[in-house]
């Protein structure tokens, strides 16, 4: 049931979805978006790959196993709360770098909430793809 249309669309859509998911992740603090939505976008990109080219191909292109992504995401989330602990504040108190300007992005604010959001992003990707891949494989036989 391989569809050429789907595969060709995927070739364009998947990189676009990945870039978009990163963009949504970054802009989330000020505009609609964030780690959760970004993660779902990323995952739908790879879901597309899994449907058109098979789960094995999707796994190969993802490189990292979903469980590893979940674990990394959780550790990143936890880690984003630690700077505050080491400086004697309450766990997860936000820390910000001074704002600076970059071409294309404009004024850039970097801080621990963004790190936390990256953790959420990774966990959501890992979870969604874990479930999706497993269900696809389970239903294949």
């Amino acid at each position: 049931m391989r569809s050429i249309i789907l595969a060709q669309t995927g070739r364009i859509m998947v990189p676009a979805l990945v870039v978009m998911s990163l963009w949504v992740l970054y802009r989330g603090h000020n505009l609609p978006g964030g780690g959760f939505i970004g993660g779902l976008l990323f995952a739908s990109g790879f879901a597309l790959v899994a449907i058109s080219d098979g789960v094995a191909e999707a796994r190969r292109r993802l490189r990292f196993s979903p469980i590893l992504l979940i674990a990394t995401g959780l550790i990143v989330c936890l880690g984003s709360g630690l700077p505050a602990v080491f400086s004697g504040d309450a766990f997860m108190k936000a820390f910000w770098l001074p704002a600076f300007s970059l071409p294309l992005l404009g004024k850039v604010h970097l801080g621990t909430p963004l790190v936390f959001d990256i953790g959420v992003y990774l966990t959501v990707i890992g979870f969604t793809l874990k479930v999706f891949f497993n269900l696809c494989e389970g239903g294949d036989a």
Partner: peptide, 16 residues
């Protein structure tokens, strides 16, 4: 929290 998107600020900062 230096964020205009309240939903996101709640998620990642206020109620992180």
């Amino acid at each position: 929290a230096k964020g205009r998107n309240v939903v996101n600020v709640i998620l990642v900062d206020f109620r992180a």
